[in-house]
């Protein structure tokens, strides 16, 4: 069996021929496209280590069959930085020590990027304590066994606020 699949991954057209309809998006990224940034922690949508953006929305890549995503646009952690210039969320994770072992980190960062977009689209601010609770809730699909949650929350809030301020300046 060979199934052609057309994806846009990090802005780049990637044509694949899958030999097997059971291949998840996560395994297609990791094993076929050798984009190993997205991690497999549970393979059943419980840990969030494989979080990527598909057509701009956060999903668990381990729960999506690749063949169901023909034509989709996928963003992974490999696509965030611009050369050596880190994405603001990536830089914030370093500055606020939002990780220890780093295994859940690609998923946390993609989840954060998606969450900040969701909050912006919904017109939610990140200006006060209630919004911090919103961030904590919004990041709770991503487990971190090391327990870096305080730094993760700080990093996401800082990145969101910086983006909001930059947006205001631009306007």
């Amino acid at each position: 069996m060979s199934i052609p699949l057309r994806l846009t991954v990090n802005g780049e057209r990637r044509d694949l021929v899958l030999e097997d309809p059971r291949v998840t998006l996560l395994d297609a990224l990791r094993e076929r496209l050798h984009l190993t940034g997205s991690k497999k922690g549970c393979d059943r949508g419980q840990c969030g280590a494989c979080t990527v953006l598909v057509d701009g929305r956060r999903i668990n890549a381990c729960l999506a069959l690749a063949v169901s995503l023909d034509g989709a646009s996928v963003e992974t952690v490999e696509g965030l930085a611009n050369g050596d210039a880190l994405h603001p969320v990536q830089a914030a994770f370093i500055a606020h020590d939002g990780f220890q072992c780093g295994f859940c980190t690609p998923g946390q960062i993609m989840s954060a990027v998606g969450l900040i977009r969701e909050m912006r689209e919904a017109g939610e601010s990140v200006g006060d304590a209630a919004d911090v609770e919103r961030v904590r809730e919004g990041m709770s699909g991503n487990l971190c066994r090391c327990g870096a949650y305080a730094g993760i929350t700080e990093a996401v809030v800082a990145a969101a606020r910086a983006e909001a301020q930059a947006g205001e300046k631009a306007a």
């Binding site: 190993t36 490999e78 965030l80 990536q90 370093i94 780093g102 980190t105």
Partner: peptide
């Protein structure tokens, strides 16, 4: 963390 840039970029 010194290895931070590697971990946040995958």
């Amino acid at each position: 963390r010194r290895e931070g840039p590697l971990k946040v970029t995958g």
